[in-house]
């Protein structure tokens, strides 16, 4: 769980930086998209690097979901009879929404790939440049809203996820606890803002 989560986190960092290239214009953004498809050429043929990333990601996602589902089922089996009254004390909103939040993020990713990678659900269709697809999508407030909600959920998922991963990897302790918590919060916020920047900028016409 922690390892697959971290792989995804690493990808997200790179992805966010890539996204921010949208601010330096269509050229730069598209060439980044092209670059990622051809990097390593000619030593590595075609889209090798991209596929390596994609496969790694896919493995991580599958592993992550598999782990999440089995934990979920284990928890259900461990408490078949639920409480009539149950109060949460320490649970943060973030930790409580890990599962359903995760599902929504998954739905988002699927939509997102259909939208921006394959263009299937994108108004520009799949023959357009990535940059056009991006702009087309986010000019629609509904799409942007969906993106925004998903990204915020993702932020929360990460805020708990990062702290949780340090625990799971046995790296937390009383002295570090505060630091880890603060880092998780800071990192998740940064990532969320970073991802929000592009869609919002498009929506408000800063990028067109």
């Amino acid at each position: 769980m922690a390892v697959s989560g971290i792989v995804m986190v690493l990808y997200l960092i790179a992805h966010m930086i890539g996204n921010l290239k949208a601010f330096s214009g269509a050229e730069s953004f598209n060439s980044y998209s092209a670059w990622i498809r051809t990097v390593g050429n000619p030593a590595l043929p075609g889209q090798t690097t991209l596929w390596i990333i994609r496969i790694a990601l896919l493995v991580a996602v599958v592993a992550h979901i598999w782990a999440a589902v089995s934990l979920w089922r284990q928890a259900k089996r461990a408490r078949p009879e639920r409480y009539v009254t149950k109060k949460a004390v320490a649970q943060s909103y973030a930790s409580r929404t890990m599962r359903w939040g995760g599902v929504i993020i998954l739905a988002f990713i699927i939509y997102h790939i259909l939208d921006l990678t394959t263009g299937t659900v994108n108004p520009e269709g799949h023959d357009s440049t990535p940059y056009d697809r991006l702009v087309a999508s986010f000019e629609n407030p509904l799409v942007t809203a969906f993106y925004a909600i998903s990204v915020i959920l993702l932020g929360m998922h990460l805020r708990h996820g990062i702290w949780s991963a340090t625990q799971t990897l046995g790296q937390s302790n009383r002295r570090r606890e505060k630091t880890v918590s603060a880092f998780a919060f800071g990192f998740a916020t940064l990532l969320t803002l970073g991802f929000l920047l592009v869609p919002l900028s498009v929506l408000f016409g800063l990028i067109d």
Binding site: L71, A75, A78, A88, Q91, S95, H160, S164, T168
Partner: peptide
């Protein structure tokens, strides 16, 4: 048959 820990922290509280 106990559940797995996902570091929620209700236990310690």
């Amino acid at each position: 048959g106990f559940g797995g820990c996902t570091n929620i922290g209700e236990c310690s509280a």
